[in-house]
Nucleic acid binder design. Sequence first.
DNA 1: GAAATCAATAACCCGTTGGCTATGGATTGA
DNA 2: TCAATCCATAGCCAACGGGTTATTGATTTC
Lengths: 107, 107
Amino acid sequence: MTDAHDLLFKTLADPTRRAIFERLCRSGEQTVGALTTHAGVSQPAVSKHLGVLKQAGLVRDRHEGRQTHYSAQLGALAPLVDWTKEMAGFWESRFDDLEDLLKRMDQ
Amino acid sequence: MTDAHDLLFKTLADPTRRAIFERLCRSGEQTVGALTTHAGVSQPAVSKHLGVLKQAGLVRDRHEGRQTHYSAQLGALAPLVDWTKEMAGFWESRFDDLEDLLKRMDQ
DNA sequence: GAAATCAATAACCCGTTGGCTATGGATTGA
DNA sequence: TCAATCCATAGCCAACGGGTTATTGATTTC
């Protein structure tokens, strides 16, 4: 039911939340305040998103004084990659566009 | 805002809907009736999910008499693969677990 | 010590979503 | 032709999710 795939897809489905994660991937560790500046939503909203991301294992937090630094955890994306590969595997060579996808996955 | 990634993640975030897509990947083309048998929800619910999947380009439909056959379109997963690779790219070699993810992506 | 800053939580609001039943249009079969 | 089947749509409802403001606890700064 609520397996790892569910958690990942649900967590990444919201554009605001995904943007926060993308920012952490691009620019590395950042405080809640820094993230709030660019998020376009209020600080509590950002904190809530970070909480969801953390629960999905997509971010880590590090407390330093009164501020909290968050950083992306790329490894948490593994189930997503696995799922995609599994779906591709089921298809085997059933359709032509499979090749395109496989090419894409092999860099 | 509502770009390709959004559509994909949102569409795949629902477990029932994702299960339908997975089934189409595993077992190939199927009618709405066949899918309804295993979906655990009503036929209208299945039709609605198929509509969402179709809008995301994840399935195709083929009408044959009074029944409609649906099949998965693996190519539609490409943006998801690209996004994952992009996130991984941003990280470059910043953390150790990146290697694990890259290994996983290269089969 | 008092004031200000940072981030998390609480409480609330509202739009979206996923489910249902009911219905209808199209096709098949008797 | 009439009944039955298949699927899509409509209409409704309850639950969930993401946003807000208000508040509080910690920490820093003056």
